[in-house]
Design a protein around this nucleic acid. Sequence first.
RNA 1: GGGGCCGUAGCUCAGUCGGUUAGAGCGCCUGCCUGUCACGCAGGAGGACGCGAGUUCGAGUCUCGUCGGCCCCGCCA
Length: 593
Amino acid sequence: MSFPKRTIYCGELRSSHAGQEVVLNGWVARVRDLGGVIFMDVRDHSGVSQTLIRPAEQPELACTIRGLTPESVIWVRGTVQLRENPNPALPTGQVEVVIAELGLLNPALLPPFPISDEIALTEEVRLRYRYLDLRRPRMQRYLRLRHQVYQLIHRYFDRHGFVEIETPMLTRSTPEGARDFLVPSRLHPGRFYALPQSPQLFKQLLMIAGFDRYVQIVKCFRDEDLRADRQPEFTQIDLEMSFVSREDILSLTEGLFAELWSEVLTVELPTPFPRLTYREAMTRYGSDKPDLRYGLELQTLTDIFAETELGIFRKAVAEGHTIAGLRLEGGAAYSRKELEDLAETVRPHGLPGLIWLKYDSSGWQSPVIKHISESERDALRQRLQLQEGDLALLAAAPWEPCYSALGALRRKLADQLDLISKNNVSYRMLWVVDFPLVEYSEAERRYVARHHPFTAPIEEDLPLLDTAPERVRAQAYDLVLNGEEICGGSIRIHTAELQQKVFSILGLTTEQVQQKFGFLLEALRYGAPPHGGIAMGLDRIIMLMAGAESLRDVIAFPKTTSGLSLVDGAPASVDPEQLEELGICVRMPGQLS
RNA sequence: GGGGCCGUAGCUCAGUCGGUUAGAGCGCCUGCCUGUCACGCAGGAGGACGCGAGUUCGAGUCUCGUCGGCCCCGCCA
């Protein structure tokens, strides 16, 4: 099909173009037929331009335009002129194109919804007609911002001496971590590839291969349930460096974020980013990914109640549990019902409830106040900095649930009190470091890696590996932005001996290790340099940069909460011949074998 | 695996205590209209109330199941 090609984009017309003949290629956005004059807005990705004709002068053109459906694809040739009535709300509002010629390139079916940011749509309709959803200006902005981010990433790492190398998508399934997506092998019936959860082992092999600095923007796959911030396939910026310390990786990462924010958002991020150890993050914020946009810091109170008369606290102290709490300014006015509502947030963490104490002009008020001594009251008031009219909320439980529960309470209060300003966007970056290497899984009755099994322990904790693995800290780090984890990485184990030891702590048998990770152990023996790296959740980063509400908004073709792709209908059943070829026989759930 | 909210016109939604012929706005169609820009005005068409059972004299409305969307817990090294 031959047609007049555009001479300018719709969104680019300005008063300086007045008098010029232009050709526009685009979509019919809207027709306003006033009888004696017809206005037609023509849209492409850059914006909208108003065109017009006068039916009295061009009756056949008028007829054509009146027959156009919205979203039909057209070309228009005409002359730019200044408008009689400019529209200051539009960038192109000073001018309009007087149509001389118009051609219909492809008539469109009536779209199920107008192409506009203003219109409210359900997620289902948007995803079913994703190509129309993506035609909307906001979605165009999000994906173009995403493109800008890609380009900057490539430039940044190239400048810092990184080599971009692709790692395979068809890999082997390894134990540990998320559930794998499996791909059956036709050539080897009964055997399966796994889609990578991350290129972790390959990038370590690249370090052993001497590439020194590797980076890749790469798709990763995890077959787990979805969330607003979790898709089964997602994109990581994956990097690894040799002969480095943690510090090198943190500052390189900070440099990238500072540059991204500066160039894409024109926001200057102060570097270095603040750092908290895992322990500090938990004891001060009750989370390993705290949101620093608001206060409500936690205080540890165990020492204050070391010799208390209050039964539940005395018992907690005796059992080595933790007592902690937070101050709620002006909270003395809370009703029983409101307090009960707050207590509800700690129950999922296994706590029976909260102890509350109101402090105001008439003194203390609390169901437990008569069991709390004067000196304890004074210490509490001081520790929490209580003022008249404040409320103290206290929890007693083992260390982890105690702080986690208060962290949940802190988030709930921030939400309830609207402490996160919507109109005043801020970006609070935070490194959380020194995570525990492993944690005990009651469900699996063994230690599991907190980060992944290739993470190096902090050297001074090495002796604890044999005696108290749960107390060993890892050389691991997460980058947190406004309460969302956006990066995670570590210095890796680079000797076969240590790697083997960690595998055994994780309860892997020698046989399992040999079978699943033998190639890694072997490679580590052929001159593996000290190395470490980080993986950044690109979709989440872009979501936060764009101010989008959902990961889906910054992914061109995302899956629904149940993992379906509504635009192409994946996953779908396949022809029996395909299964036959793969040696696969499908048994539906509940069906007898 | 579990919990919550939702599914009614092309879109977004209302629909009372279970009761006559199921509504609104936008969009669409027809007509009128020479400066609109979410044009305006007048008229009109458009519905297996997601699907399947059940309760009932009677179900959009109640119950169960199922499919789909969203959010959360578990899960996500």
